[in-house]
């Protein structure tokens, strides 16, 4: 392992300044992504700025939203009673992610910034990776792709954004507060990530030295229900093959309002607006659920290893809608 400098600032400005001043510096939160990348030799910063001493941990409950400090751990957020009551799908997505040990280390800010699990990205002996080295090609497209994306991708990069919790967060229009060299700004999550087919080497809109300080999560209105369905090969401790986060409000047999996002399929957490529009204000109808899913998948780009995900994603969404509307198949 390569030697690096280690800073442990206690103030946000200090941390931002430390990273901003050194192009080879990176923030370190729980380290569950960052340290892996260093061990694999994919990203070997000369300086790590440990942000875990910054006063950014904890949850403030307001009437319409939660203000979640970026250093709040996945377990802490899942344990917040208001999350269970008003954001059930956020809690479910958190608890279906990683393992207890990881969730006790992993921060919510770090979760949004986790890097793709693509094994070609994470193995520096593989030369073709447009995400790691621009214009070098994409090894995944021609080799083993299963845990890869089918939406927001093309033959230049099929990297998946594998976060679970980001899926319901994008569905409820959460946003992040960022402190950077140029001051503070708010970025809605729907505008936070950059799709691989819009440029494989840029993952999000943050600049060097930008620090996420807070995640603001609007609470679902009273009378809404929500749920997260994660489909994966083994029962626990694995990323999603496909997942669906759904929040909706029923009015008798009518879907009065609905929010949908899909995981396991996109180069970014995937807000399924086409599906929302097709279902909003319509009666509960299993056939329509499937059509809504198909509409989202219309733009899918697949390779042999990921082709099954088109159908699986449609079924995952349908199943979750069936469960939440208690409709018969």
């Amino acid at each position: 392992m390569r030697a690096f400098l280690y800073d442990r600032p206690t103030a946000v400005d200090e941390a931002v300044a430390a990273v901003a001043a050194d192009p080879q510096a990176a923030f370190l939160a729980g380290g569950t992504t960052q340290v892996d990348l260093m061990k694999d030799g994919v990203w070997t910063p000369d300086r790590l700025v440990d942000i875990t001493r910054l006063p950014l941990r904890g949850i403030l409950v307001e009437s319409q939203q939660l203000k979640v400090g970026a250093l709040t751990t996945m377990e802490e957020l899942a344990a917040e009673p208001v999350v269970a009551q008003r954001l059930a799908f956020v809690r479910e997505a958190l608890l279906h992610g990683a393992s207890v040990q990881l969730r006790n280390m992993a921060t919510i800010g770090g979760n949004l910034l986790q890097r793709t699990r693509c094994r070609y990205f994470r193995d520096p002996t593989v030369s073709a990776c447009n995400r790691r080295s621009p214009d070098s090609g994409c090894a995944a497209v021609d080799n083993v792709a299963r845990m890869h994306a089918i939406l927001g991708v093309d033959e230049r990069c099929i990297a998946l954004h594998a976060s679970d919790v980001a899926v319901p967060l994008i569905a409820v229009d959460a946003s992040v507060l960022v402190n950077g060299p140029a001051g503070q700004r708010r970025i809605p999550l729907t505008e936070f990530w950059v799709r691989a087919d819009e440029g494989p080497s840029i993952e999000n809109v943050l600049g060097h030295g930008d620090l996420i300080t807070e995640i603001d999560i609007p609470l679902l209105p009273q009378g809404w229900r929500s749920g997260y369905l994660k489909v994966r090969d083994r029962a626990s401790y694995e990323f999603a093959l496909t997942s669906a986060a759904v929040a909706l409000q029923l009015d008798g047999d009518l879907i009065a309002d609905i929010r949908i996002a899909l995981g396991g399929v996109g180069s970014v957490p995937w807000r399924a607006r086409e599906a929302e529009e097709m279902l909003r204000g319509t009666p509960v109808d299993p056939l329509r659920f499937e059509q809504a899913g198909r509409a989202v998948m219309a733009s899918a780009f697949t390779v042999p290893g990921t082709a099954f995900k088109v159908d699986l994603a449609v079924r995952t969404l349908s199943r979750q809608l069936l469960t939440m509307t208690e409709a018969k198949r």
Partner: peptide
């Protein structure tokens, strides 16, 4: 254990990528 068809490299040689049964299974 998967092998890259073109290069013969192990495609999933880590415990994050090679799945073994966990307790829940």
């Amino acid at each position: 254990t998967l092998t890259d068809p073109g290069t013969g490299r192990v495609a999933n040689g880590t415990f994050g990528d090679y799945l073994v049964a966990v307790n829940a299974d």
